[in-house]
């Protein structure tokens, strides 16, 4: 089994609509029922982020995301799948349910 990070890409800070939330719930239940669920979460707006650099002496805190971009990650799933064809299918369903594009990226194996 491999794990994949499924990042939800979005270009506005608007939250999901009630309809989208309902579809996401259905998708989450399917992931859990089929054994593909690992974790998921929605993220607050990029403007609420703080970049922290603790590499050298006193940590440095910087307000805002590390990259200003038109699109940002609005949420994510971590899913488990035997191979990419299954993960791609789940990603397509996930994208449909939250009504946004997603980026699928494998986690490194142990």
């Amino acid at each position: 089994m491999a794990q994949y990070l499924m990042s939800v890409l979005f270009d506005s800070t608007d939250l999901a609509t009630a309809e989208e939330m309902a579809a996401i719930d259905v998708f989450n239940e399917k992931l859990q029922a089929d054994g593909n669920w690992v974790f998921a979460g929605g993220l607050a707006a990029p403007a609420t982020a703080t970049v922290v650099d603790g590499r050298d002496g006193d940590p440095v805190f910087t307000d805002g995301p590390y990259l200003e971009s038109k699109e940002h990650v609005a949420g994510f799933w971590i899913i488990e799948a035997p191979h990419l064809d299954v993960a791609l299918r789940l990603a397509a369903l996930g994208s449909k349910s939250c009504n946004r594009r997603v980026e699928l990226r494998p986690l490194l194996g142990e």
């Binding site: 191979h83 990419l84 064809d85 494998p106």
Partner: peptide
């Protein structure tokens, strides 16, 4: 290798 693209024939509906 990293993304585990399967070495196989796709799902029937694909």
């Amino acid at each position: 290798k990293a993304a585990k693209i399967p070495y196989g024939v796709p799902f029937r509906e694909d």
